[in-house]
């Protein structure tokens, strides 16, 4: 790996100051399982000059529950999230999502903040420099997205305009379904933001001087059914081809509230608002579920090689609504 300067940060404030000092030439290391790959393969046009280790900040890896909800420190590892009895009891959706990430070894060091901020897995974007040079795609300031007329089997089927890479985070869609908010620290102090508003087509709203400090999840209704489904070719290791998270509350088969979020189908996580609206007040049946799935994917326009993702997404939504696996 090419050399960089390395700095340990010991508080959020210090991190923000360091980010300001290095003026966009620094990257945060919140776990490293994504970052180190990015650095080793030299995929970025500008190699960072400084790596700021934030794992050295004490107290950011806690899970605290009160009556209203739960606060998760940004450095909480995915393994700790999976092992937390509190999360298992009231926020099982997040546990399920975290449990599908990568492998046990990765989950022991990958953090929730890192998982939310990870870079896309698009294989054009990630093409390693050592075999003929990295690819300067639209996301890196190039003119076009090579996936559009290329090998786009894993790319976006909706919502993409210039870059067809998808957001790979499994925990993001779980948190959006749960209505979670982020505490973001920056030079002007902290701000809170729903996870739903965090992502943009080319990444996130996080600017180069900010970091996620914590995640807050309001306590969902105890009768709400939380479900997470992720379609991959293999259970471990793989990033989602399609993932879906939902919280559906129903009484004797009649749905009165639903939140459905899709991952890996678009550059950002996608709320299936039309499907959610449609389901309210409906008696759940296979037909209703299929119709909801259709509405969820109504905007989809697959590329040359990823129409199958649309079918899978519809199937997953349908199965979620029906409570099937």
């Amino acid at each position: 790996m090419k050399l960089f300067a390395h700095v340990n940060a010991y508080s959020v404030d210090e991190t923000i100051k360091l980010l300001a000092k290095y003026e966009g030439t620094a990257k945060l290391n919140a776990g490293g399982t994504d970052l180190l790959g990015v650095l080793k393969n030299r995929i970025l046009p500008n190699y960072p000059e400084v790596i700021i280790n934030i794992k050295s900040i004490p107290g950011l890896n806690t899970i605290e529950e009160d009556e209203e909800g739960i606060n998760i420190g940004t450095l909480t590892t995915l393994a700790d999230i999976i092992a937390s009895p509190v999360i298992e009891k009231n926020y099982s959706l997040l546990k399920e999502a975290a449990g599908t990430v990568a492998s046990p070894q990765i989950r022991n060091i990958a953090t929730i903040g890192g998982n939310l901020c990870q870079d896309t897995r698009c294989w054009y974007y990630r093409y390693p420099d050592e075999v003929g040079g990295m690819i300067k795609c639209f996301r890196k300031g190039g003119k076009t997205c090579p996936a559009v007329s290329g090998e786009n089997q894993y790319h976006a089927i909706m919502g993409a305009k210039k870059c067809f890479a998808v957001c790979p985070s499994d925990t993001a869609i779980a948190l959006i379904a749960l209505g979670a908010t982020l505490t973001i620290a920056g030079a002007e102090g902290t701000r809170t933001l729903p996870v739903e508003e965090f992502y943009t087509p080319l990444g996130s709203v996080l600017n180069s001087g900010e970091m996620i400090a914590a995640i807050y999840i309001p306590k969902p209704s105890s009768v709400a059914g939380q479900r997470f489904l992720k379609f991959t070719l293999r259970k471990p290791i793989d990033f989602a081809i399609v993932s879906v998270a939902s919280i559906i509350t129903h009484d004797q088969g009649v749905c009165f509230d639903a939140r459905i979020v899709l991952g890996a189908v678009a550059p950002t996580p996608v709320r299936a608002l039309k499907a959610e609206e449609f389901l309210k007040g409906k008696e759940l049946s296979e037909e209703i579920a299929a119709e909801a799935a259709g509405l969820a994917m109504a905007e989809a326009k697959p590329l040359s090689k990823n129409a199958y993702k649309l079918e899978i997404a519809k199937t997953l939504v349908k199965r979620l609504v029906m409570g099937l696996t």
Binding site: W123, Y127, P128
Partner: peptide, 17 residues
């Protein structure tokens, strides 16, 4: 179009776990 092998890493190249 590029002559490049896109799945040249052990996440995108699939193997049995």
């Amino acid at each position: 179009r590029l002559g490049r092998i896109m799945n040249c890493n052990m996440i995108d190249y699939k193997w049995r776990t």
